[in-house]
Design a protein around this nucleic acid. Sequence first.
DNA 1: GAGGGTCAAGTCCGT
DNA 2: ACGGACTTGACCCTC
Length: 363
Amino acid sequence: MSRKPNTSPNTSEPPRLGFCCTFIPDPDPGHKTLKAAKDAAKLMNLGTVTMAHLERLGPTARFEKLEGVVRHNLAALERQIAWVSGRPPLERLLRMASSVLPGYTHPVAQPLYAEPAMRALIETGLARIGERARAGAVRLSMHPGPFCIIASRNPNAQANGIAELEYHAEVMTMLGYGSGWHPHGAHLNIHVGGREPGIEGFRESLSLISETARNLLTVENDESLFGLDAVLRLGDRVPVVLDLHHHWVESRGAYIEPDDPRIRAVIASWRGVRPVSHISVSRESVLPEHDTGTLPDYVALAEQGHSWRDLAAHSDLMWNEAVNALVARHLVWTDFEIEAKGKNQASVPLAAQIGRDPSLAAA
DNA sequence: GAGGGTCAAGTCCGT
DNA sequence: ACGGACTTGACCCTC
């Protein structure tokens, strides 16, 4: 675990940006029918099974159902990573879906995951996928959902949340990212969680999680309770993932530039590892008339009657050129996960635009 | 194949 | 007190 203080951007890694969890095939008719397009999407994406359904099945069917889903998920994840590694270096980043091993911490599925045949399948598959990612220079992360909290007033919720985080850490370990400080830039990103016990509760809970999980953990600013200044109070222990859109919403309209002093603090929190940040824009359907060359003005839009919730919702595509230019400026010091509902259909054009425009690429 | 009810989980917010 | 939103709509049953 090398955790040397470092306040300068890590320039040894090239900039990257990528999409999250789901691959959307081109609408163009490489596929003759809608069904063919749906089948293509299915091949590329992870599936799941409900615990209620598993519970209704007998022992044999139960195992076979889960094994089938896991087998599919490993293959789909491998295809996603193969696709990303075939993209230009700027696009070699992927947030993996959390559902690789559905119900891993749930009592119905747990015994099935303990079966030697299942373990062998998973360990072999994930090891191979991790090697493929490293060979293809694909940076990987996961973003456990809102149930994954490490500090809560409810001890049961906290225990479940920690188990969920450890599940993600196990997946990372099997992929080959189980030791060292955010190896190859890999990370598990979560939010602070509830108002109580808040930042201090989060800090105390760090002692309750494994060293592997601690070495992979990052914490992200949210749109309401724990903004950038709040999460930076954890920066001495946990790298901070800056979500520029959350910050815009939480601050009611602020855009952070790379020379902002808080960016130094974010960089320092990563301790030599190139940071990751998040970007998205308000939905197209919320701002249908908005000028694509101007940064959305939160205060003006709120005065026009747009609700906090509407402005916080994510767009399909990266439709705003001014926001895209902001991303390009920040790429000097950070990678980006593109949180657009259009997934790769949003991140690929954004990367192309940044690659094409010399003034943006110079950044 | 389409349509509708269901799905493991925590927290906040608006009604 | 309850439903919806959030990481993300997908899954599963019935017709």
